[in-house]
Nucleic acid binder design. Structure first.
Lengths: 210, 210
DNA sequence: TCGCTTTCTGACCATATGGTCAGGTTCACG
DNA sequence: CGTGAACCTGACCATATGGTCAGAAAGCGA
């Protein structure tokens, strides 16, 4: 039984500080990687003394773990738009929209996730083997159903999912490269729309859904 | 004028040791990131005393820079198959083949590159702004020509290139995730071929080239 | 107001790390 | 075989970093 949480100043302080620290940590981990990030840097970014960070998060690894879990939730949540879709055009189209939006709004989190996976998923291996595996199997089944129903070409669902992840996350993880090739300026609203449309049109046409 | 290089023992030693160190460094940087990698770890991996590394590479950053340059060369070289192609089917098809092969054979290098770009390209920003920018502009022009010649649909060349990079590099950078979703086992020859074929068929169909 | 809990933090510590260096060894060449 | 250059390395150092802790300050319920 969870206690009813009263909105005392105490609770507010705790919640707010954890939020601030996690946000700062996400940014620093994204910019410097786990090894390159320092508690001091995160503390400065959060505007708090280092010792205060250790009051809320015992170790650097615990803090990092929380950051990764946070983005993983968002990541999984994006699939809501995938479910209950009548076909690939709506389902995959909405999924691409959602993931592109994540790449734009949560670029730091995406980078932390990418970094974590690239380095062999030292802290979220169990998530990969449980939650992600189920998630993937479920969506692959949906895609297979669409194929069986003749709504799209017979593309290996796994590899299609990888393509979706790759193309959408690329705009976050390699955002710096894209920005550089864009004359050093972030993509405008219009350019983000063009990116989204390009990805959607190539993929949806590529799987024979349109 | 470069001196003619004699194949003395001296030259052999230098060349061989640099090769060993660079290989070890690539692996360690890929696994731990720049910040997480230590000269001691690289030294152990190379089977050499740490002080010996500093004899060949003055600083950790210089060693890292060499590793990044190395993979960048390979990366650019993959575009050879892109040029002089009569159309997108051959050109882009060959490019995907080449890049998938790189993802398979040089997964560590690919990860180092990804990591470097993700963290804002601190050491190769100049390359991005010169070599890569020209490279990209050139290829975009080729794609635009194919579009103008009616050989493929009017897809924004930039975003198409991003899709090519993203989908192919994903198999290296997120190889651990893919491996986990594959029951913890690396992709077999057959599976690599399936991956290549999936990517090629979706992209080529997606741009209206087949 | 009182007593207890939670929050906060400057000062401190043990350790790990990048890098140095003096002195040794091996090699090339005349 | 002698000499100089290239190669090698154990021992060492300055610094940075994750983490600790004692004690102060603030909030809360009675």
């Amino acid at each position: 039984m969870a206690e009813v949480e009263r909105l005392s100043k105490r609770n507010t302080i705790r919640r707010e500080n954890e939020r601030i620290i996690l946000a700062a940590a996400e940014k620093v981990f994204a910019e410097a990687g786990f090894g390159g990030a320092t508690m001091q840097l995160i503390a400065d970014m959060a505007g708090l003394p280092k010792a205060n960070l250790h009051y809320y998060f015992a170790t650097k690894e615990e803090l990092y773990r929380k950051v990764v879990q946070q983005i993983f939730e968002i990541w999984l949540h994006a699939a809501d738009s995938f479910d209950n879709a009548p076909g690939p055009v709506e389902g995959i189209g909405a999924y691409i929209d959602a993931k592109m939006e994540i790449s734009r709004r949560h670029a730091d989190g995406s980078k932390v996730w990418a970094s974590e996976v690239m380095h062999g998923a030292p802290v979220i291996q169990d998530y990969l083997e449980t939650t992600l595996r189920e998630w993937t199997a479920g969506r692959a089944a949906v895609i297979q159903r669409w194929i069986d129903e003749g709504k799209m070409a017979a593309v290996d669902p796994r590899h299609l999912l990888y393509m979706l992840w790759a193309t959408t996350q690329h705009y976050a993880d390699f955002g710096h490269q894209i920005e550089t090739l864009n004359g050093g300026r972030p993509l405008s609203d219009r350019q983000w729309k063009a990116a989204k449309d390009s990805v959607k049109s190539v993929i949806l046409r590529g799987i024979g859904a349109i």
